[in-house]
Design a protein around this nucleic acid. Structure first.
Lengths: 188, 188
DNA sequence: CTCGGTGGAGAGCGAACGTTCTCCGACACT
DNA sequence: AGTGTCGGAGAACGTTCGCTCTCCACCGAG
């Protein structure tokens, strides 16, 4: 096993465990056992648990956003692409191990004690917001719709997790659609 | 110091520390030191840390909702009372130690490992949802507006915490107002 | 075959955790 | 005054944590 594979296996294991149980509930030894990577190697690649946590968040950020944008950008530009974001959320919420937004969870757990992690969370949310802003702009929608749509998506994530009801995404979608038509009922 | 005061001081201290730093980051000894209540007394009142965590969530649930409803119910019934919820959120977000919804934070941190805590979180969110539902019903608004308004409030809480921007509550308020007028533009 | 370097397995380290126990001083009652 | 009960302070316990170290099997180069 070379460095690259060890790193991948560590991050795969860390992501699964951190997301499923929370960050502080998972010990380094558990990650080592589950991944099959030795402690020595682990600490070569990630000098501390905080480094591993940060790498987990960063990799999840890129992958999560790539998945979302890959899905939405395959739809026709305009309102439909905006609403596709909520369709993607609906699919995500339905996954059996869905447990809310990993970044919101991490922020609540370690945001106050780990400034680097908090910054990663802020960066992730800013990236999502920017993406939605781009969709709105290209759909000819006013900037004033960005916050509402973003807040609906955020609210859907936490609510779907706590109530374990994926269909919340569709309610958020309906609300977003209503806001879009209310803002410019006669738009093409 | 009698039992009742010890309990109050413990819960006050626990609430402050748990909310500020997260649950697992706060040790029982810190609560004992900060509260001035002896360990013996602490374990008489709360046989385990998990019991203290649960009591923290339950007391915060009642207080938080009482504060919100006390504020909103003082406004004229109808749409104004619904929108008052977001005004109250705006005030809360602006408090210097605001760090998001304690229940969302607790759910992300220990929801997967502490079923009682997870149930308390679900109960809290259900209570908030029910309260909003009552406001909508008494305002003559359709049930279909409940999810959108609730999701806007949820999204505002996490977003205000992560981006440290209280004014998000006012954006959510604007969006809720738009949804209300869009649903029944001609309502009184 | 010998060597030097690499990495895995896991023991070991000090600190911190949640929890319990020991000790002792402070009253309440006879 | 003597005795019993209570609670406070904090030592102590066993476990777990993040992290380091030891030991040895392996392997290519000479």
């Amino acid at each position: 096993m070379d460095q690259a594979e060890a790193r991948t296996r560590l991050l795969d294991t860390a992501e699964q465990l951190f997301y499923e149980r929370g960050i502080q509930s998972v010990g380094v030894d558990q990650i080592r056992t589950a991944s099959g990577v030795s402690l020595k190697r682990l600490y070569q690649l990630f000098p501390s648990k905080a480094d591993l946590v940060l790498a987990y968040l960063q990799r999840r950020d890129t992958r999560w956003l790539a998945s979302l944008t890959g899905y939405a950008d395959a739809r026709p530009a305009g309102d439909e692409r905006i609403l596709a974001v909520f369709d993607w959320l609906n699919g995500w919420f339905g996954e059996p191990d869905f447990r809310g937004c990993a970044f919101v969870n991490a922020f609540g757990e370690i945001g106050a004690t780990d400034p680097a992690a908090a910054a990663a969370v802020r960066a992730h949310k800013a990236a999502l917001r920017d993406y939605l802003g781009g969709l709105l702009r290209r759909a000819g929608r006013p900037e004033s719709l960005l916050d509402p749509v973003f807040l609906l998506a955020e609210g859907a994530m936490t609510t779907a997790a706590i109530t374990n009801s994926p269909e919340v995404a569709l309610r958020a979608r309906d609300a977003a659609a209503a806001l879009l038509t209310a803002a410019a009922p006669a738009a093409a």
